[in-house]
Design a binder for these strands. Structure first.
Lengths: 162, 162
DNA sequence: GAAATTTACATGAAATTTCATGTTTTATGA
DNA sequence: TCATAAAACATGAAATTTCATGTAAATTTC
């Protein structure tokens, strides 16, 4: 009985599957799947995803400091610094030191940056509405609540302000 | 009325906040927040996150082909190829061509690789249980369902097999 | 059944990311 | 208030990732 008599596939492996039901996999895969389309649009606009995230954050809070931006855009600080430098070269944001606390660097949208940000945020809102529709009506609100709960319980949750 | 009379903070910006309620942000942030602890453990084990993902996939299906592995481990193919090469150098996986279809490269766990994979999968299961507890009882199952629904609707959903 | 496509990986160069660390400025504390 | 610690960024070198493309093998077409 060590060998199945009708082993079509070469008797591959164990039978218990871990990955496809694993919460962290589901979260990552859902995030990727849900983002794919819109992120493709972002790239069509000549932006990389982290750059779009920065724009979205600045849309909410122009003049945010780098560290906060990093938290909300989910980008590590030194990496963000370099991304911001590129965005500055490109003319969509500007950096200015904070006179109140001269350690801080605040990042501002330029007019072009703001236009881009607003256009993309509008698109993102439409796309999100589509997504939430796909999610069979009330599921949408529920999944958001659940995700927010998860985040709140796991991360201290700060504000983009200050 | 253009200027608030008691503007404590320098009258920062608009009032509507987009990011913090945006589904794609919630998904990405939830994924990050939920994964942070365990991924730290993974790094303590001397692995990077993508390497752990490969091990987990191989735990489910030893001898998976590179393309499938890439889909399930959420890693772009050419990047995965290089990661696998490193893992091979390190002695935790082996590559072997598939005689049935000689374009394919199949990846197998070495004994050390399997030990690592099994230990980490066990830890991951415990960690997931903790997470699901944090998520107030039944919320856990629901969030999983919702995520799976999202993925199924958005991604064709293939199997690690073949 | 030969040519044209497609699939599956591998690879090299350019670009980006990471990691550790440096600098400057603000908080803290004895 | 002076020293020390902490916070906020910036930066350089090494490592990784990306992108386009190359190669080999299977599949589809005509």
């Amino acid at each position: 009985m060590t060998d199945s008599p009708l082993a079509q596939p070469p008797a591959p492996e164990n039978g218990d599957t871990f990955v496809s039901g694993y919460l962290l996999y589901l979260l990552a895969a859902a995030s990727e799947a849900a983002s794919a389309q819109f992120h493709a649009r972002v790239r069509e606009e000549g932006l990389r995803v982290p750059e779009w995230r920065v724009l979205a954050c600045l849309h909410d809070r122009d003049g945010a400091m780098v560290t906060r931006l990093a938290q909300f855009a989910l980008i590590e600080q030194s990496r963000l610094t370099k991304i911001i430098a590129q965005m500055e070269d490109r003319g969509i944001v500007t950096r200015r030191g904070d006179p109140e606390d001269r350690r801080r660097t605040r990042v501002y949208l330029t007019p072009e940056g703001r236009a881009l940000a607003e256009a993309l945020v509008a698109e993102a809102r439409r796309h999100e509405a589509d997504l939430l529709n796909i999610l069979a009506g009330s599921d949408g609100a529920r999944i958001k609540q659940a995700l927010r709960a998860l985040i709140d319980r796991l991360a201290p949750a700060e504000s983009l302000d200050a």
